[in-house]
Design a protein around this nucleic acid. Structure first.
Lengths: 183, 183
DNA sequence: AGGATCATGTAAATCGTTACATGATTAA
DNA sequence: TTAATCATGTAACGATTTACATGATCCT
């Protein structure tokens, strides 16, 4: 039940159309919450029906016409309520870890190449986050919003750092391992 | 499409009944792939229908009767194929990070208590993983399977370490922040 | 005999992904 | 004028979650 609140957050930050939201969910928002345009349009419809957002006035609702939304007071209240409410952390679900556990019983053939590919992907992501940090959070300027957003970006940086280190360690292990046998 | 392969991995490690699998998905398997008993029973049915697993012979299929499964050769082949195939890493989706981003626009009231609660939960999880590491992976003994399983556990330990550190930093930020205003 | 727990399922709702459909705008 | 792209959707399916249902076994 987080997608509607991700959209509310994005719209409070800046009223947007469905496609603009989609773009933002591929960039900054997407660093901690991803969504496709199909999810976004469906959810925009629901949020509007519930009276939490509304289309900006002065726009005809024709298909193919741009339609921007803004958050209504009820939407802001709901977002504040959700943000303050306790939520349990979700258990981890990671395919690569599962594949390594599987490799322990069916053999390691083929996994190493994908470990290397993942390492490259995470290194690229890490470099992108660090560029954003340098650009958007220079030392000194620190409003409360800035510090919170910087904190979120730090989580992304630290997580990508973890993955690059762990994948490096995994590849080092593979180098020492015997062949591809099922054990 | 990873749940069937998580179940195959578990069953290759040791043939089990649905409830036994459920218990294992609350313990070791669950450290990187969680599943409820409803998912597990449904998937066991599918895997059996596809001829990848079978009920251990010599058991009547009555309701409420324990029924154990083992992996057939076709199941082991499918698991090896899936393990070797490339998979893209899934984008991050984390509720706490989203809530902090939301807090930047609707105010931080109430979040701090849950940050503290999460910190405790992650500290407990980290302690549990470290106890397992001490118990199951003493230095010296290192078969190929052991090294791979240890690697997976290390990921869990490092991830929990990241969270405890990041949550600590977040709480330190909150201590320096002004009141609960929407910015 | 009765209740707790073990064990296996069913049903319904929501969420997420993939594929497809359709109108509007812009540029060759 | 036609092709590409912008923009908004629909449809279908699979995965996940929550709630409920039911038989078997064990203990008192």
């Amino acid at each position: 039940m987080s997608l509607p609140h991700a959209i509310l957050t994005a719209l409070v930050e800046k009223p947007s159309s469905g496609l603009e939201l989609t773009r933002r969910f591929d960039r900054s928002i997407g660093y901690f919450w991803s969504a496709t345009h199909q999810q976004i349009y469906r959810e925009l419809g629901r949020l509007e029906a519930e009276g939490l957002i509304r289309a900006l006035p002065g726009q005809q609702p024709a298909r193919g016409q741009k339609k921007s939304y803004e958050v209504l007071p009820a939407g802001r209240d709901e977002l504040a309520r959700w943000t303050a409410a306790p939520h349990d952390p979700k258990p981890l679900r990671d395919t690569m870890l599962l594949r390594l556990r599987a490799a322990a019983v069916v053999g390691t053939a083929g996994v190493e190449a994908d470990l290397r590919r993942h390492l490259e992907l995470h290194e690229r992501q890490l470099a992108e986050y660090e560029a954003i940090e340098k650009r958007d959070f220079p030392p000194g300027r620190d409003s409360a919003e800035d510090r919170l957003r910087h904190l979120v970006l730090r989580a992304g940086i630290d997580l990508e750092t973890f993955w690059t280190q762990w994948l490096g360690r995994a590849l080092a292990e593979f180098a020492e391992l015997p062949g591809d046998g099922p054990a």
